[in-house]
Design a protein around this nucleic acid. Structure first.
Lengths: 194, 194
DNA sequence: TTTACGTTTAGACAGTTGTAAAACATTCAT
DNA sequence: ATGAATGTTTTACAACTGTCTAAACGTAAA
């Protein structure tokens, strides 16, 4: 992101950032991402084009900021790297809740942006990288030969796959069912034992 | 893809398609995908712009055709949906070979296009969808509660994750080691039994 | 050879993109 | 309040995109 959330944000800048990201999300519910030009976006947000480029490198950079805002709404701190660990399921529930709380927005967006579109891809990729970082931060040394980093990526991409299936692929699924999915996919032995 | 590989291709059309895709792959080894304009591409391929748009919708459409050509080089037919099945590992080996045979090209491309770039994303997404189709085509009815389609996606995205790790992330890994990875990630119980 | 057909090409078009320089507005310490 | 620093807006620009039209081309049947 061009804009650095770490640095202090003036009231004016915050207002501008909010206006652009909310306008983008609104327009995503109306038309495909490819059809949204920076021109039209600025028109709708009622800001000059130069201001847009003041805060963002391009459309994609704004998207990243949109996902950042969404992600920021939920605390995702107590994650363990081990799916048999109880804190893993707690983290999974938090992630489920994050997506669930934006259910309507996601439905609207997907209705104009297919699952294999650049937009959905960008969305998935952003959250995958966020979760990968969280998973690998507390990864335990494991008995496997597979590198820890690869395992962390595997966990997060699997979790995202399930979220995509449920919330973007429009397969209504309760949190409890979703928990079964993630256990079956990540720990097949777990299911056999039961 | 705008161009339909199913329809008969005249000799002239085949030459044009080949020229564009090879030029694209060559340029990807020289600069990032975002910096490659259709103009420059046509210049390098020595074809007029109108011809480009005759065959492809845009840059991305040409990319898809590039991956299609790559994919076509290898037979990927005998795939089973079950990772404990021997044919699954046979298929995995074929996929490993496919990427391995383009090792130099992938190195060159990645040196100008980071792992989280649009380009690499597009590449991964294309092959994930190809493998998903193959895996679900022969998916066996399973004891899991997780939908078959979701499981197929999980298999293919995991396989691609490993390929990305090895060939794009530049972690030299033998085929035997790669086989260990895929077994550990997809069938942890399998490893425990051994 | 001529005709007819589909494909390829040249050129032009309106709209978009990202950048740069300068004008303008705010904020805040002095 | 004054002035410096910072942030915002205007305007202009060169380059690119995707589409269109009409002309040029090749090929295969009459």
């Amino acid at each position: 992101m061009k804009y650095d959330p770490a640095q202090k944000t003036t009231r004016g800048a915050a207002r501008t950032l909010k206006a652009f990201s909310e306008t983008m999300l609104m327009m995503l519910g109306e038309k495909p991402f490819e059809k949204i030009s920076v021109n039209a976006l600025c028109e709708a947000a009622d800001y000059p084009r130069a201001t847009f480029y003041n805060y963002f490198d391009d459309k994609y950079d704004l998207l990243t900021y949109c996902w950042y805002r969404m992600r920021r709404e939920v605390h995702l701190d107590q994650i363990s790297g081990d799916p048999t660990d109880a804190t893993f399921m707690a983290a999974f529930d938090q992630i489920y809740h994050l997506f669930d709380s934006h259910h309507d927005l996601l439905i609207a967006v997907v209705s104009h942006n297919p699952l294999d579109s650049q937009l959905v891809n960008h969305f998935i990729q952003y959250f995958t990288s966020v979760f990968t970082e969280l998973f690998s931060a507390r990864a335990k040394p494991q008995a496997l030969k597979t590198p820890v980093e690869l395992v962390a990526k595997h966990y997060s991409s699997t979790v995202l796959l399930i979220m995509e299936w449920i919330f973007l692929g429009q397969h209504p699924t309760t949190r409890e069912e979703a928990e079964v999915y993630v256990r079956e996919l990540l720990e097949p032995s777990f299911t056999c034992v039961e």
